[in-house]
C-alpha cells in the first residue's frame, strides 16, 4: 500500500509538472481533482473537528438531559442552521443573521486589539529607541538604525496619505517612502524565491529518493 501510495503521488506530481510543457488533459485532471479533494478534506475536518464537538455534542447533551445548561447552546445552533437557508431562494436572506453576528462580534473584538497590537505597539517600537539614545545605551550603528527607522516609517506613511496632493516637499518625502517600499518589496521577493524553490527541491527530493527508491 505504501509503494502504491508513492506511485500515485508521483503520477499526480508529474501530471502537474506536465503543465510546464503546456496545458494538457493530465494537468487539468490533477488540477480539478486537487480542488475536489481539498474541499472534501476541509468539509470532513470542519464537520469532525468543528461542527460535532462545538455544536452537536452540547446539543445532544442538552436534549438528552445530560447537561440542561447546554440548552442555551440551542440558540447559536439555530442561528448557525440559518446558513442552510442559502439553499432556498425565498429564504436565503436569513443567512444575513449569522453573518451579521459573526462580523459584528469580530469587528468589536478587532477594534481594541488591533489598535493595541498594531498601532500602539508599533508606534512604541518606533519611538522607544530614542529613549535608549537619551540614556546613552545605543551604539553608533543602532542610533543610525533608529533614525533611519523613523524616517522610513514617516516617509512610507506619507506615500500612503492621499488626502493631500503630493507636490513640493511632500512629493520628495513620499519619493523617499517609495524607496523604502522598494527595498521592502525587494527583500520580500528575495525571500519568496527561497520559499518557492524550497517547494521544488522537496518535490524533486520526493521523485528522486522516494519514488526512485521504489524503482532502483
Amino acid at each position: 500500500m505504501e509503494v502504491f501510495g508513492i506511485w500515485v503521488a508521483a503520477f499526480l506530481t508529474l501530471c502537474i509538472y506536465s503543465f510546464l510543457y503546456r496545458d494538457n488533459p493530465f494537468y487539468r485532471f490533477a488540477e480539478y481533482l486537487f480542488v475536489g479533494v481539498s474541499v472534501g478534506y476541509v468539509f470532513v475536518l470542519t464537520t469532525h473537528q468543528g461542527f460535532i464537538p462545538l455544536a452537536w455534542k452540547p446539543f445532544w447533551a442538552a436534549i438528552t438531559g445530560e447537561s440542561l445548561i447546554g440548552l442555551i447552546k440551542l440558540i447559536p445552533i439555530c442561528i448557525g442552521l440559518l446558513f442552510f437557508t442559502r439553499f432556498s431562494t425565498q429564504h436565503q436572506w436569513l443567512v444575513r443573521y449569522p453573518i451579521a453576528i459573526l462580523i459584528g462580534a469580530g469587528s468589536g473584538l478587532a477594534i481594541p486589539n488591533v489598535l493595541r497590537a498594531n498601532i500602539f505597539e508599533q508606534t512604541r517600537g518606533t519611538i522607544e529607541p530614542f529613549a535608549a539614545i537619551h540614556a546613552g545605551t545605543l551604539s553608533a550603528g543602532e542610533i543610525f538604525g533608529a533614525i533611519l527607522m523613523v524616517i522610513g516609517v514617516v516617509c512610507t506613511l506619507t506615500y500612503f496619505f492621499f488626502s493631500i496632493e503630493h507636490r513640493g516637499p511632500i512629493k520628495w518625502v513620499s519619493k523617499v517612502g517609495i524607496a523604502f517600499l522598494m527595498i521592502g518589496f525587494g527583500s520580500a521577493f528575495g525571500n519568496t524565491v527561497m520559499g518557492r524553490v524550497a517547494l521544488l527541491i522537496q518535490r524533486v527530493d520526493f521523485l528522486l529518493n522516494d519514488w526512485g527508491g521504489t524503482i532502483f
Partner: peptide, 15 residues
Amino acid sequence: NPNLSARRGIILGVS
C-alpha cells in the same frame, strides 16, 4: 532596518 520601516508603515496604514 529599511524593510522594517516599510513594513511598519504598511502595518500602520492597513491597521
